[in-house]
Structure formats: structure tokens, C-alpha cells
């Protein structure tokens, strides 16, 4: 799941080398934290959060396949 988020983020941003992803596994829920360059935050969030929502949908579907739940958090 970490790789999936990292891939999506790297494809979207201008500074892919500054993309950092951390996976915190809980009992039921996995939290994926995404950190990007300051100038790229808008790109991973999108207009009215559209891009962030799309990434969350894809992440949720992937987690569901593994019988888990996943949350995507974008860190500032």
C-alpha cells in the first residue's frame, strides 16, 4: 500500500525525489502518511480535494482486497 501511494504521489508532483511515505500499521486500520515538497501539496490535494479523494478511493479498494482498512493522511 505504501508503494501504491508513493507511486501515485511521484507521478503527480514536480519534485518526486521529495516524496516520503510512511505506513503505520494498526490492528484494523493502516494509516499511510504522505509528505511532499511544500510547493507540491496543492498537486496531491487538487481542486476541492479531488485528487486526494481519488487517491483515498484507490487506496481503500486496495486495502479492502487485503481485508483491511486504510487511511491516507497528507502531512504539511
Amino acid at each position: 500500500m505504501k508503494e501504491l501511494v508513493a507511486y501515485m504521489a511521484r507521478e503527480l508532483v514536480d519534485f518526486p525525489e521529495q516524496v516520503e511515505v510512511r505506513e503505520i500499521e494498526g490492528e484494523k486500520t493502516t494509516v499511510v502518511e504522505l509528505k511532499v515538497a511544500k510547493d507540491d501539496i496543492g498537486k496531491v490535494i487538487g481542486r476541492q480535494g479531488k485528487t486526494a479523494r481519488a487517491m483515498r478511493s484507490i487506496l481503500s479498494a486496495t486495502a479492502m482486497k487485503q481485508g483491511k482498512r486504510a487511511m491516507l493522511e497528507i502531512l504539511e
Binding site: 479531488k50 485528487t51 479523494r53 478511493s57 484507490i58 479498494a61 479492502m64
Partner: peptide, 16 residues
């Protein structure tokens, strides 16, 4: 799974 609830996942993939 790829379609998702109300086609949500499919829309997300297409948009992204």
C-alpha cells in the same frame, strides 16, 4: 473492487 461503491474507484482511477 475496481468499480467500487457507485463507481467511485473507477472514477478515481479514471481521474487520476
Amino acid at each position: 473492487l475496481l468499480i467500487g461503491k457507485m463507481g467511485q474507484t473507477l472514477d478515481a482511477l479514471e481521474y487520476l
